[in-house]
Design a protein around this nucleic acid. Structure first.
Length: 492
RNA sequence: CGGGGCGUAGCGUAGCCCGGUUAGCGCGCCAGAUUUGGGAUCUGGAGGUCGCAGGUUCGAAUCCUGCCGCCCCGACCA
């Protein structure tokens, strides 16, 4: 009873908060809008980060690190981008504190330590990076530059939510420079596909791929590619973005190169990122009223072993029986935890690891020792089966694979059931209100129309699908001709 | 930036309107015993600057003033 959480039906937002806190992914902090990522949550992030990092390296990227602070003059160089972020920037104005003469033991900002130029705490790093690239690039021989950085960024949000929107968050941002437009576009699409691959195959979360409408596009980008996932409450969540920046930043920062024909041109750019927000997506897409459900491929603990014993003698018998099993799990590369602590009784442990979303639990007691068996419980379906100790490891490996697929398929089925084609605005409003989810509808292509729809329904265009369905029709709002359907949803 | 809520032991809370024993309860914690296949039970014990600072009063968790902090809802945003 100590760790019960609000059910999804009662209050989805509260369920989410309870779950994040009680599964020990994160905690609130003394800093407004900033959270502490707890060890369990960070272990999850590390697994995600490591998988992504490998994918980046496998596609030819290298890591580097750029400064947290961006001088204001650099920040504002690319005007659209600067304007887009202006309202949510933290600014450093001073560099020193001093003792407050009026309040003993207290400190005050030293007015004599005002910076000549304010420093912006990066909300994203294009400015400082393009300022740097300028000095790295002279010739086409210097291109492409394929750099990624793992970093924290700060966006001063009015309203925050654990993982989904916090003032400071962790992410990776790729920043690439290319000699040709085509190569940059290819890079942009490639990275969107890397993201989709990661989110679908590691996080077991199906995504839609597409491009953003002008309203939703990254400030400073020519085109924003994105992946969108659907949460259990029928709201969409942007899971990753990849931007084709054209020559906007190269022009703003005067980054030119000499091409093969000895002609001077501005370089072509991309940037792409995913953040700890993905953890929020994971929680909301898969979790249930008993806690998290983590996909095995990124779960910090894939298998937990809980011994059940009535006395020390039984405990030591189980212990000796478990040892070869642990060796087997380790050799099979399975992340496991053998919880033989006496602090909690088995029932408590069961609930605790379910809260934390551990995919598989192995229970072993006197009965099992006698039968040379174990009880295996899978978290996603809450099913228990008895398995023989003989050949257990391959069976557990297979089960983990099966769970990975099963979680994905469940989410995919949900998304299919929650994707609706509509023809009229009335239908659109009804579906939105009564069902939610992705709504595929015709749109006339005008920003004003999208804004109007948002004003009336809170739904926005999540993406314009990459594959053209070739189906023409009439805009649900204006009745003007539309060449294709786009995907609407209420978004996080 | 508007609206609301909260701040009392590690966590969750009662008490506050209507000032007056030693600030109560549940969980957790510590010791011991019995237990252990779905969140154990009993016995004993420890743990509190009632967010901070002023003020009113014989007396303040409670009333007044100011401040600080966090959370939730909205607008804005990934």
């Amino acid at each position: 009873m100590a760790k019960e959480i609000t059910t999804r039906e009662t209050d989805y937002a509260k369920w989410y908060n309870d779950l994040v806190l009680k599964s020990e992914l994160a905690d609130y902090s003394a800093v407004r809008g900033c959270m502490v990522i707890k060890p369990y949550g960070f272990a999850l992030w590390e697994n995600m980060r490591d998988a992504l990092d490998k994918m980046f390296k496998d596609t030819g990227h290298v890591n580097a690190y750029f400064p947290l602070f961006v001088p204001k003059s650099l920040f504002e160089a690319e005007e659209k981008n600067a304007e887009g972020f202006a309202k949510e920037c933290a600014i450093v104005t001073h560099y020193r504190l001093k003792s407050d003469p009026d309040k003993p033991g207290k400190l005050m900002v030293d007015p004599d330590a005002k910076l000549e130029e304010e420093l912006i705490v990066r909300p994203t790093s294009e400015a400082i990076i393009w300022n740097t690239y300028k000095s790295w690039i002279q010739s086409y021989r210097d291109l492409p530059i394929l750099i990624n950085q793992w970093a924290n960024v700060v966006r001063w949000e009015m309203r925050t939510r654990l993982f989904l929107r916090t003032a400071e968050f962790l992410w990776q941002e790729g920043h690439t420079a290319h000699a040709t437009e085509q190569e940059a576009i290819e890079e942009t699409v490639k990275m969107m596909n890397v993201y989709a691959d990661f989110v679908e195959n590691w996080m077991a979360l199906p995504v839609l791929k597409g491009v953003k409408s002008e309203n939703e596009r990254f400030a400073g980008a020519v085109e924003t590619y994105c992946i969108e996932a659907l949460m259990q409450d029928g709201k969409a969540l942007q899971a990753g973005t990849s931007h084709f920046l054209g020559q906007n930043f190269a022009k703003a920062f005067d980054v030119t190169f000499t091409d093969r024909d000895n002609k001077l041109d501005h370089v072509w750019a991309t940037s792409w990122g995913v953040s700890t927000r993905l953890i929020g997506a994971l929680v909301m897409a898969h979790g249930d009223d008993d806690g998290l459900i983590l996909p095995p491929k990124i779960a910090p603990i894939q298998v937990v072993i809980v011994p059940i014993y009535k006395n020390d003698e039984q405990k030591s018998v189980i212990h000796s029986k478990v040892q070869p099993l642990l060796v087997g799990l380790k050799n099979a590369g399975i992340r496991y935890k053998y919880d033989d602590s006496d602090n909690a009784r088995p029932g408590w442990k069961f609930a605790e690891y379910e809260m934390k979303g551990v995919p598989v639990r192995i229970t072993i007691g006197a009965r099992d020792v006698e039968n040379n068996s174990v009880e295996v419980a899978r978290r996603d379906l809450k099913q228990k089966t008895v398995m023989s100790m003989d050949g257990l490891i391959p069976n557990i490996s297979a089960l983990l694979d099966e769970i990975q697929k099963s979680i994905f398929n469940k989410a995919l089925e949900f998304r299919k059931a929650m994707t609706t084609n509509v023809e009229t605005f009335d239908e659109f409003k009804t579906v939105l209100q009564e069902k939610g989810g992705f709504i595929s509808a015709h749109w006339d292509g005008f920003s004003g129309t999208e804004e109007k729809i948002k004003e009336l329904t809170k739904a926005t265009i999540r993406l314009i699908p990459l594959e053209d369905d070739g189906e023409s029709g009439k805009c649900i709002l204006t009745g003007k001709p539309s060449k294709r359907r786009v995907i609407f949803a209420v978004a996080y």
